[in-house]
Design a protein around this nucleic acid. Structure first.
Length: 895
RNA sequence: GGGCGCGUAGCUCAGCUGGUCUAGAGCGCUACCCUUACAAGGUAGAUGUCACAGGUUCGAUCCCUGUCGCGCCCACCA
């Protein structure tokens, strides 16, 4: 007989079991299998990343889905991989370089990229290792990286197609610019955070009236939060209906400090109620001003360098940092008496999502994707339910973004990433700086798309080519992930079989970044949705509600938790506290839930394996020999199978977890296992014990894969791996309701007797004598058949049991549903104590009875409520009345 | 400015289409127990005007409206 070690030691089993699974190639997804396919998309974690607790949650959920589906007989593919995280990775390597006193420019592009690749080889698999430690059953043979050759081909293919369909353009727009990373960012990459800023009021003189005496005639006051951008002002705008400024029509203003002449323009988009109603117009540094400038044909003056310093336009301010310049300009304006006042002003300011530097809205020439055409289908598929969000409120968030979608800035001024596959013919373009070329659509002269130098220009025959220096947004490769990883644009068997996938599991933060764009890309390039279910789980926060992040230092490292309590406990704990879509507030103690449960399962299994000996074999129990408890536990198991399966199918993971917890702990261990110790038919009991254990372990396997596999390996007659065992199927019949009812009576009676024992401080080893009044003959049979159990579990002697049993003198009484029980205590009864107990109980029951009485005497209730509800209420009433009667009887007898 | 979520036991939270709710769980608390699977355990127990105010309904923790408190997301009010 095999035996489990006495002590549950997750460290001892987890890594070795994972190695066994790997050796047996159980994670592999076979595209030639005849099983129905089932695939999920793993969000490619950032290659610079390490596993944080949010990943642990995310990947546990996916692993649960995948493991259940695998056990249900699907050919499951869980495709793992990482994305190259352009900006983040480049930052990491640049930081490394700066410690050596170098910049990337010192190395040059080629050497720098070599260095990044080296870094990737050294560190890029950290998170993969960690996911394995967590137990993820991904098909690691298919691990992909967004810069792999195949995925890069997909990126190029998509770029070409978008270009040829006129969905790409390159032009001057205000984009979010990170002066630290020195690159453009998409709107999604600029995170808005509320900051306490100032709103500065500044006088702009009217040309020729430099005395500055009368506001509105000699000067105009404008309000701005970014005074440094005034260096790029070209106009001041007012609302045409604003009476204050009617007189300024046709006038010219002077920019303080630079003395540039500014036009006065009128535009309906200016809000007269904000500030002074006069808006300084800086088309190169503000999106609103850019629009205004475009409508009124204004010049665009860029005043900053790429690292956020004032450029030569700024005269004396040249070379100053943008915020230093802000201070200096204010001081200068105060000196020149052009400064009016400043007010506190709270406003949202964009920050770089990678380095948290304040983003500068800046005029820049960038590549964009026209998104509106791509969004049309993507809106439809969610509207008509082909793609469902869980919980569905996220569908609204998605649609709201999709319906207001803006063009996607995809070029980045960094080196690590997919280089934009565009070659410029220097001859056709008259040696213009390639950064300055504007491209509206396909067929632009002198432009060749491709990864290789085209060699010869198709239009002029020239041979001098220069590739676009920029790279693509990382998400431009991530949005292709569901099909690029399956070989697209090649037609592959895997691509046919495993696309579309079924489920996507992710956090709310990347709905726009990734989920929405994958849907668009899937529809556009594969002509089909990439997945049908999007499950959005909550954000993991610390106990105070703050997002867990390294910079806040509130991170719980999952690997440390694994070291302490094991991966199974971590997984179970985090799932059980995560109700659907709700944010998770995490603290260290939460992991006790899983640790204790794992321990319980371990010990119960150990006990079962120890006691069954050779009795169980692999044979099922003989149905004719099943007793009340056997039938009850089998029926409860059946219910549990049904509920766990349906909860998991509905993405209610915590519900499934607690269903299992309750069944295994409070039904199987607390009752069935205890009763099994007293069984007289050891063979049947053993068979039931093993059967229920095996089925429970299977249900638990997706949550606690290691533990269940370890135990499975010790069970006689449990073949193969639990990981590939067949998922339990619930029976069609409702099960033995008689046994369930009977068992409920047993439990109620035993509990009630124990209650009496505890209340009267009856010594542990002393047996009490009990008389039991059971009105129902059905229940009486059930109880009589299980007298042995009742006696032993409650530590009592049943003196009498039947429908006519009366309360003897000198006894205390108790109730178990409609069963009355009497315990003669002789002189040991403290009358006053018992009286107060009974009186309190009467009060309680009468309160409930009152409520039901009121209901039942309400004619409208009787008329309107469905029949079964009324019947139930009546039943309840009868029960309570009996209870009250009994209790009153008891009270009377005590006096 | 728009959208969303949350206020339920001392703490952390479940409670899915209103009646199976006499509102649950885990932790904590009280009493008893080292009963030969488990003290990371067992047995028994205490604790709730389900944020507040209205409304709909025969009936509301659940649906609607408003108020207060907390949190999140989106947004070009300079």
């Amino acid at each position: 007989m095999k035996e489990l070690p006495t002590k549950y030691d997750p460290q001892a089993i987890e890594e070795s079991i994972y190695a066994e699974w790997t050796a047996e190639r159980l994670f592999r997804a076979d595209e030639n299998s005849l099983k129905p396919p089932y695939s999920v998309v793993i969000p490619p974690p950032n290659v610079t990343g390490i596993l944080h607790i949010g990943h642990a949650l995310n990947n546990t959920i996916q692993d649960i889905i995948v493991r259940m589906k695998r056990m249900q007989g699907y050919e499951t593919l869980w495709m793992p991989g990482t994305d190259h995280a352009g900006i983040a990775t480049q930052n990491v390597v640049e930081r490394q370089l700066s410690r050596e006193g170098k910049t990337r420019h010192d190395l040059g592009r080629e050497k720098f990229l070599k260095r990044v690749w080296k870094w990737k080889e050294d560190h890029g698999s950290t998170i993969i290792r960690q996911l394995k430690r967590l137990g993820c059953s991904c098909d690691w043979d298919r691990t992909r990286f967004t810069m792999d050759e195949g995925l890069s081909r997909a990126v190029k293919e998509v770029f070409v197609r978008l270009y040829e369909e006129g969905l790409l353009y390159k032009g001057d727009y205000i984009i979010n610019w990170c002066p630290r990373c020195e690159t453009a960012l998409s709107d999604e990459e600029s995170e808005h955070r509320d900051l306490e800023g100032k709103l500065y009021y500044i006088k702009y003189p009217v040309k020729g009236r430099e005395r500055l005496e009368k506001e509105g005639e000699d000067y105009v006051v404008v309000a701005t939060t970014r005074p440094e951008t005034m260096l790029g002002d070209v106009a001041v705008a007012m609302n045409p209906d604003d009476p204050r400024y009617k007189g300024l029509k046709g006038k010219t203003l002077l920019l303080p400090i630079l003395k540039r002449e500014l036009k006065v323009i009128f535009d309906g988009n200016v809000d007269p109620s904000f500030g002074t109603g006069a808006l300084k117009v800086t088309p190169a540094h503000d999106p609103v001003d850019f629009e205004l400038g475009a409508r009124h044909g204004l010049e665009r003056i860029n005043v900053m360098t790429s690292d956020g310093k004032i450029n030569s336009v700024g005269g004396d301010y040249e070379g100053m940092d943008r915020f230093e310049c802000r201070e200096t300009i204010i001081e200068d304006l105060i000196q020149r008496k052009l400064f009016v006042k400043s007010e506190d002003h709270r406003h949202a300011v964009g920050h770089c999502y990678r380095c948290h530097t304040i983003v500068e809205p800046r005029l820049s020439k960038q590549w964009f994707v026209r998104m509106k055409p791509l969004s049309v289908e993507a809106i439809k598929v969610v509207r008509d339910g082909r793609i469902k969000f869980y919980p569905d409120r996220w569908g609204k968030v998605y649609l709201n973004w999709m319906e207001n979608i803006r063009d996607w800035c995809i070029s980045r001024q960094i080196w690590w990433g997919h280089r934009i596959p565009v070659w410029y013919c220097k001859d056709c373009l008259d040696d213009h700086d390639v950064r300055d070329i504007t491209i509206d659509g396909p067929g632009h002269k002198g432009i060749v798309i491709g990864n290789e130098n085209p060699g010869k220009c198709p239009s002029c025959g020239g041979t001098r080519f220069e590739q676009d220096p920029d790279v693509l947004d990382t998400w431009f490769s991530s949005w292709l992930w569901p099909f690029s990883t399956l070989g697209w644009p090649e037609k592959t068997r895997a691509g046919e079989v495993f696309y579309p996938t079924k489920a996507l599991v992710t956090a709310q933060e990347i709905i726009f970044f990734w989920v929405a764009r994958m849907i668009m890309a899937g529809l556009k390039f594969r002509g089909a949705i990439p997945f049908s279910d999007v499950y959005i789980h909550g954000t993991v926060r610390d106990a105070t509600g703050a997002k867990m992040s390294k910079s806040l230092g509130n991170v719980i490292d999952p690997l440390e938790v694994i070291k302490e309590v094991g991966s199974d406990a971590l997984r179970y704990s985090i799932i059980s506290i995560t109700s659907q879509g709700q944010d998770v507030f995490l603290s260290r103690e939460k992991f006790d839930i899983g640790r204790n449960f794992a321990n319980k399962v371990w010990n119960a299994s150990r006990y079962v394996l120890m006691t069954i000996g050779e009795l169980a074999g692999s044979a099922p129990p003989d149905a004719s020999r099943l007793g009340t408890a056997d039938k009850w536990i089998l029926s409860s198991l059946d219910t549990t199978v049904r509920n766990v399966t349906s909860s998991l199918d509905a993405y209610r993971f915590s519900e499934a977890a607690s269903e299992l917890y309750d069944f295994i702990w409070h039904k199987y261990c607390d009752w069935y296992l205890e009763m099994s110790k007293l069984s007289e038919d050891k063979e049947t009991t053993s068979r039931v014990l093993v059967l229920v254990l095996k089925e429970s372990l299977k249900l638990l396997h997706p949550f606690m894969p290691f533990l269940t596999e370890a135990i499975w390996g010790m069970i006689p007659g449990a073949d193969g791996r639990i990981m590939t065992a067949a998922w339990p199927v619930a029976s069609d019949e409702p099960g033995s309701s008689d046994a369930v009812r009977g068992m409920e009576k047993i439990i109620a009676l035993v509990t009630s007797i124990r209650n009496v024992r505890a209340f009267w401080n009856i010594e542990h080893k002393a047996k009490v004598r009990v008389l039991v009044n059971v009105p129902s003959s059905r229940d009486l049979d059930a109880l009589k058949n299980n007298l042995l159990y009742i006696r032993r579990l409650a530590g009592c002697e049943i003196v009498e049991m039947g429908p006519e049993v009366e309360r003897p003198a000198q006894s205390v009484a108790s109730l178990a549903g409609d069963i009355r029980l009497f315990v003669p205590l002789g002189g040991a009864i403290d009358i006053e104590k018992e009286k107060s107990r009974v009186a309190r109980k009467i009060g309680e029951v009468e309160k409930y009875l009152g409520g039901i009485d009121k209901k039942l005497s309400n004619a409208s209730f009787l008329d309107n409520a469905p029949g079964d509800v009324v019947a139930k209420e009546k039943e309840k009433k009868a029960r309570f009345e009996r209870e009250v009667a009994t209790l009153k009887d008891n009270l009377a007898a005590l006096s």
